[in-house]
Write a protein that binds this DNA or RNA. Structure first.
Lengths: 90, 90
DNA sequence: ATTATACGCAACCATAAGGTTGCATGTCAA
DNA sequence: TTGACATGCAACCTTATGGTTGCGTATAAT
């Protein structure tokens, strides 16, 4: 569980929006999430770019994914964030 | 107070070490901090690179600096971190 | 069976990020 | 006042990052 990956994953605004959405709706497909970002947050992005972002989030442990048929189901996991943010707080 | 700058500032391991040190010892000069990182954390880095990192941290509001004679005094400020980490925690 | 769907993978591109070297400048000590 | 010291500034370089296009593939729908 490399914390560096968590910090780096959170450094991109698009990935933070993705976490916002996944935080609200616990389970989504990659396709749903992409559509949601485009229409609700006016993000201009391709599916392939979204897939890359999801991979970054998954390597950081912030997202768990599971292949179900032709869909990739995404679930948010807040545990890495908890282990990372208290570092400089007393 | 752009939160994006905070996330980006935290994305680099050297800057995180700098915050660690500044969190421990509230007031340091840039020179002290550089020396401390090199000897205590075995970071191979130049003074100029450190100055760049400090500027990034300052723009994010994580460090306040004040010119005192020929020294630049650095003070850690945890307020931006508090405003940034509860985003995905219930 | 054929077509549409949701996704994975790879190559490629432009910009940002982190680092270095070199030089200039203001401050302090001898 | 002269020199060492702590820092600022700018140009430059390398690699990482975020994005794209193109193609392949397994699943689902018609």
């Amino acid at each position: 569980m490399h914390k560096d990956l968590v910090y780096k994953a959170l450094a991109d605004p698009t990935r933070r929006l993705m976490l916002d959405e996944l935080c609200e709706r616990k389970e989504q497909t990659l396709y749903e999430l992409t559509a949601r970002l485009i229409v609700r947050h006016e993000v201009a992005i391709s599916r392939q770019a979204m897939a890359k972002h999801i991979n970054v989030l998954e390597r950081a442990g912030l997202v768990r994914s599971e292949k179900r048929g032709k869909y990739r189901m995404l679930v948010f996991n807040d545990e890495p964030i908890r282990g990372v943010m208290n570092r400089w707080l007393k």
